[in-house]
Amino acid sequence: MLEILNLHASVEGNEILKGINLSVKAGEIHAIMGPNGSGKSTLSNVLAGHNAFEVTKGSVLFEGKNLFDLSPEERAWEGIFLAFQYPVEIPGVSMTNFIKTAVEAKYKYQEKDAPSPAEFLKMMKEKQAMVGLAKSLAGRSVNEGFSGGEKKKNDIFQMAMLEPKLAILDETDSGLDIDALRIVAEGVNTLKKPDNAYIVITHYQRLLEYIVPDVVHILHDGKIVKTGDKSLAFELEKKGYDWVK
């Protein structure tokens, strides 16, 4: 599904990613762990197409398509979803209107008829219940005045609505208490299907107790320095990041 080959990327002239190689197949969950500044968020932003990050070398193929030929919204339509570390507040734009615009754009790209208002509302209700997002939030502006936990749940709710092929969860666990973490993780697990894949980016092993990865990668100084199964995460937790340096 996703093939990353020798990816180099920089921001404001500083090279952050220094040759990433990663292959993700449908049905897999990959965890990427690393200390602060190792390039985790840069990787997720590069995959989603943020223009502050410059790709200097390497290639990324998504379902056989060159990702760098696609605009951020085209990547979204193709099925890449980024759950943000810090979801953005958009004052005045209601959640309902926002997600409706996004869903309709995707259907249009896929040349399918968008769901009727009734179907859409039904879908919203179901998915909100799934991630435990209060119904009242739908009428509010996107992320405005949401608590940290609500923002994260809201991102997972959007993921449920957009049904991506590849979801990248960027430090989704940061700022969540244990209950909120469990609810978010349950939502993520429910959405897991044989034909989609996850990249879970995290600093701590905690999240991986709930979302169990097939493969764990350790990122350090812009490179993947170790790859293993889920036991690698436990080992890392015990020994600390100094171990990989």
Binding site: A48, G49, E73, A76, F81, K106
Partner: peptide, 10 residues
């Protein structure tokens, strides 16, 4: 960018 990532054009 947040909107773009959700598939909403600029």
């Amino acid at each position: 960018f947040y909107c773009n990532q959700r598939g909403i054009s600029t």
